[in-house]
Structure formats: structure tokens, C-alpha cells
């Protein structure tokens, strides 16, 4: 079940350096929300706050609330491990586990939760099908995940994230290390995934945001400048800074 995410007064720091200032944003369920902005604007930090991965970095700190279907993931009793089972993530560079086979890569998440035997095979197959990789790898599931091409590795990582059956899928510039053909495959894939998952995608590439995102947020220097339906943000930006960014005057 796709869920909504509500971000309230979110601030984030790396040591003494503040990376995010008072972010307020509502991510709609079963939609793709794109996050754009120049390098260093805090968009990656933002997405990493949504599954509490930011706090894994040494010296990193967060304040504010993030509500997943109404429940604060930063509440004192909230458990980041359980949370991350509900919010999947795909990273900038494909990072399959090199010591595991293709099958084991996808099975890694469900295995943690105790899924075994036929059920596990089913989950792995379903996830690989969803990620559009099944046909390419069905005959070599026992090969190393590192033996695939870059684009295939990234789809493997998507399958790995889907296998835990998350409600939200976070994608941190998932195509930045890929060639145009692989990028296109992944963009198509996102379109088909959004019925079941709420997707938040950080992208460096404005064309990509305009192609895939239903809603787009523009970040600048750690602040949320503007947020709205993609078409509106790109055609009639309200803020002059948004306008100068999308017309390519900086970043």
C-alpha cells in the first residue's frame, strides 16, 4: 500500500554545518515526487532524512517531524530498522552486494524478516519481474550481482528494494551513473511502479523531473523554495529563483 509522507519543520546538520532549514512538504501517495536543485542544495540529505539514513553518518543530526501515514518516524519510540523495511531506497551508484549472487541480492531483505523456501523464491521472482530484469537474469540467478552491466545492476538494486515490499521508494539520482538507454528503461519502470508505491526521486536532471515526476520540489541552499505540480512549476514558477534555475541561469 502506497502511503503519504508529511515533512514538518525538518532541519538537518552535519556536525556544526546545517544542511536543511525548516522543510515543510507533503508527499502524495502513489505519485512520483521529484526533488531538483543544484549540487549541494541538500536534496540528497533531504531524501536520506526520510528513511533515517542521514543519522547513520557520523555527527549528523535531525530535528522536526516526518509523518509516514500520520505516524512520526522520528518519535522517541520509533525504530529506524522497522521504518526502513517500509521505505525502500535506491542509491546514486548501483551498489549490489558483490559477494552475493543475483538471487541472494534480491533475497537479502526478505531473508532478514525470516522469509524462507518457496515464499522467498516467489518474492525474488516477483521483484525481478517488477524491476523489469527477470527475463534477462532468469537463467543466471546464481551468478554474482557484480557481473551485470551498470543499468542492470541498478535495476537489480531496485528489485532488491522492492523485495521488502515497501510503501515508499526513495531514489537518490538513480540514473546519474547510467547511459541514456538504461536511464530510459528506469524512467519507464518508475511509471509502472507508481501505482503501488509512493516514489520520491532526487534528480540532477530537470528534463528527467519533467518527464517522470507528478510533483516537483525545488531546493536551494538547504531550503525548499517551491513545490507544486510538475507542469506548473516548470511553466509558471512563482519564485524568481526557481525561474532562473529552470531556465538554466545557474547550477
Amino acid at each position: 500500500m502506497a502511503q503519504s509522507l508529511t515533512v514538518e519543520n525538518l532541519n538537518a546538520w552535519y556536525g556544526d554545518k546545517q544542511a536543511l532549514y525548516e522543510i515543510n512538504l507533503h508527499v502524495l501517495p502513489a505519485k512520483i515526487t521529484g526533488i531538483i536543485g543544484p549540487s549541494g542544495c541538500g536534496k540528497s540529505t533531504f531524501i536520506r532524512c526520510l528513511n533515517r539514513l542521514h543519522e547513520v553518518v557520523r555527527g549528523a543530526r535531525v530535528s522536526g517531524r516526518v509523518l509516514l501515514n500520520g505516524q512520526d518516524i522520528y518519535a522517541p519510540r520509533a525504530d529506524p530498522v522497522l521504518l526502513r523495511q517500509r521505505i525502500g531506497m535506491v542509491f546514486q551508484k548501483p551498489n549490489p552486494f558483490p559477494t552475493m549472487s543475483i538471487f541472494e541480492n534480491v533475497a537479502a531483505g526478505p531473508r532478514l524478516q525470516g522469509v524462507r523456501g518457496a515464499a522467498l523464491h516467489e518474492v525474488v521472482e516477483r521483484s525481478l519481474v517488477q524491476a523489469g530484469l527477470w527475463e534477462e537474469v532468469r537463467d543466471r540467478l546464481s551468478q554474482s550481482g557484480a557481473s551485470l552491466s551498470g543499468g542492470q545492476q541498478q535495476r537489480l538494486c531496485i528489485a532488491r528494494a522492492l523485495a521488502v515490499n515497501p510503501e515508499v521508494l526513495l531514489m537518490d539520482e538513480p540514473c546519474s551513473a547510467l547511459d541514456p538507454a538504461s536511464t530510459l528503461r528506469i524512467e519507464e519502470l518508475m511509471g509502472s511502479l507508481k501505482e503501488h508505491y509512493t516514489i520520491v526521486i532526487v534528480t540532477h536532471n530537470m528534463q528527467q523531473a519533467s518527464r517522470v515526476a507528478d510533483y516537483t520540489a525545488f531546493f536551494l541552499e538547504g531550503r525548499l523554495i517551491e513545490y507544486g505540480p510538475t507542469a506548473e512549476l516548470f511553466t509558471r514558477p512563482q519564485d524568481p529563483r526557481t525561474e532562473s534555475y529552470i531556465t538554466g541561469r545557474f547550477g
Binding site: 523495511q85 525502500g88 542509491f91 538494486c157
Partner: peptide, 12 residues
Amino acid sequence: SQREAMLALGAT
């Protein structure tokens, strides 16, 4: 990136 990939799957 390897650690984060595993943590993001809900690993302890």
C-alpha cells in the same frame, strides 16, 4: 554505500 544499501533494507 555497501553498508547503507543493507541498512536501507531494514537490517540491524
